[in-house]
Design a protein around this nucleic acid. Sequence first.
DNA 1: GCCAACGTTGGC
DNA 2: GCCAACGTTGGC
Length: 156
Amino acid sequence: MACWLAKTEPAECGIADFERAPEAAIAWVGVRNYQARNYLKTMTEGDGVLVYHSSCKLIGVAGVVQVTRSAYPDPTQFDPSSPYHDPKSPVDAPRWVAVDMVFVRCLPQLLSLDALRSMPALAQMPLLQRGNRLSVMPVSAAEWDCVLQMAGGAGR
DNA sequence: GCCAACGTTGGC
DNA sequence: GCCAACGTTGGC
């Protein structure tokens, strides 16, 4: 199983939205960055994903979800009414992909950005690098364990 | 709302 | 293919 971290604005789609309907898969749409998209394409069913809340009051890792469907064309790219509409994406060769994810758990407490920065074991995470803007990024097994341990939970 | 960082666009 | 302009991200 591979591990990932995905950024989201909780006002739009946060861990609470997954928790609210724990049986329902949510489509992770709207990724419009090529590097992040390429990571999305390599996700497989069962992969774990740390949900990171950004652009909000409580910034940090808030929970864990799991991939239930690997990459498929992101429908919002063809929807003129969607904020993610991409008129330049060819219908016969979709530019952007989505994956489906399902709730696993909320962390007992949010792991703040400061807390993450305080851990030497996490210093290499792209998330913590200066100027980083990647919205989907790989997480090493060691980083994953570190994060969950900090959160007071079990490992993988 | 500010601003640094960085990706994308488009003219040449 | 270069590079300036522009837009977006995201913490503060």
